[in-house]
Nucleic acid binder design. Sequence first.
DNA 1: GCCGCCATTTGATTTTGATCAAGTGAAAGC
DNA 2: GCTTTCACTTGATCAAAATCAAATGGCGGC
Lengths: 241, 241
Amino acid sequence: MEVRRRDIHNSDIPIVCRACEARHGGVCGTLTPEQLTELNKHSTRHRLETGAEVIGQGETIVNYSNIMRGVVKLTKVMADGRQQIVGLQFAPDFLGRPFLEESAITAEAATESEVCNFPRPVLDRLMKKTPELEHKLHRQALKELDEARDWMLTLGRKTAQEKVASFLYLIATHIDPESVDMSTFDLPLSRADIADFLGLTIETVSRQFTKLRKENVIRIENNRHVIVPDMDRLMRYASAD
Amino acid sequence: MEVRRRDIHNSDIPIVCRACEARHGGVCGTLTPEQLTELNKHSTRHRLETGAEVIGQGETIVNYSNIMRGVVKLTKVMADGRQQIVGLQFAPDFLGRPFLEESAITAEAATESEVCNFPRPVLDRLMKKTPELEHKLHRQALKELDEARDWMLTLGRKTAQEKVASFLYLIATHIDPESVDMSTFDLPLSRADIADFLGLTIETVSRQFTKLRKENVIRIENNRHVIVPDMDRLMRYASAD
DNA sequence: GCCGCCATTTGATTTTGATCAAGTGAAAGC
DNA sequence: GCTTTCACTTGATCAAAATCAAATGGCGGC
């Protein structure tokens, strides 16, 4: 049984949006072709080098973004430099904090990435007019909240080994939503970033990688490429459910 | 200059809602008197003993709630019993997870509390009809997300002493939004709960309380009543900004 | 191919917080 | 009034992860 799409002709949709809209279910998915065309007039695409900042902690939010490709890390920094990654966003996630003047976090490309930027007032106006859009953003916020709370359990109660296994499991299941085979992937984060995500030091992260490798839970090539022979086994090491 | 309220006569609002609506800005605040009356027809108020469960991890969500009085803790439990409190909700917070079948967390009264329950379908229907209501819930979700991320920094990067000081600061600033004087309050959590919130053991929490007491950052009476002579000093101990 | 740089790993030692084990003290029950 | 109980505190020891300190290894530039 074929389900007919509601949004009429693909040709009504801006060219740059087509590939994106077709592949994923980003926030633009709820918009009519007209709204998409209007939004697209003001939106700009950007390629981000690894480490490029989308927005900094304490800065005024003038743009929202959609991640088209790559991984963006959300970090919080303390006055003395201690750092914690509080979220990882993957394509096609929405990036931004509606209803707040300034950003409480820094958003920074963890890998070479591509984003689509919308001027804040344009999307805010569109949100007021289109309850469906706010609904979509509401869902995304709740998804991020669920993820944040899952991670709080990891940060507060798991051992270093469980933390590292949990991280690998998270990446395996999120890095490529297209792929059916999650057992081989490239890590989007350096050891330093992984440490900041897990609330550990680089050295502890490295030692746990070595330990998981020696116990044949994972194989590692070139420090970044990971192969998981048995995903369930990794999950058990992560004490995940 | 007096600001005239938009919502006509107070007498149009259900009696049980008046005190609540007047005191705080809960989710009901956006509803018209008619909608409030309609919602109130289906809503039920409950007194919760300390420890009473509002909903359990993995259970089907059949109700949403509003906290009228008291503190509710949100917890996650691992298969082996390790536990983490992933959120504290204070009156007049909304309690519930829209758009999801079952709850990923347990919600449980941390103190003797009072909640107002709404059958899920009633509020879901109202949300579809009233974008302002979804907007309010969206805002609440984002607030909880901000709080969760703040806490991730605490869990991942702060020392035991900073964690305990951060907890005290959090309670001081949240327990009684009415009060101007935040320097004296009762702890809504037992030492065991505080440990589960901070990712520590009871013993470590206790030792840090003793240390803060000896350094005159706080005074403690009857294990639960706390006096903070200098809030800025506590904040510095928390490494908060 | 060799050099230098930087990320990562590995090793030795220290520190922080966990664990194990008694105490203390306040409130409830007999 | 005395015991029992339970939450909390305090003390001694242990273990996990941090810190300090080198080594290793991959990669781009020359």
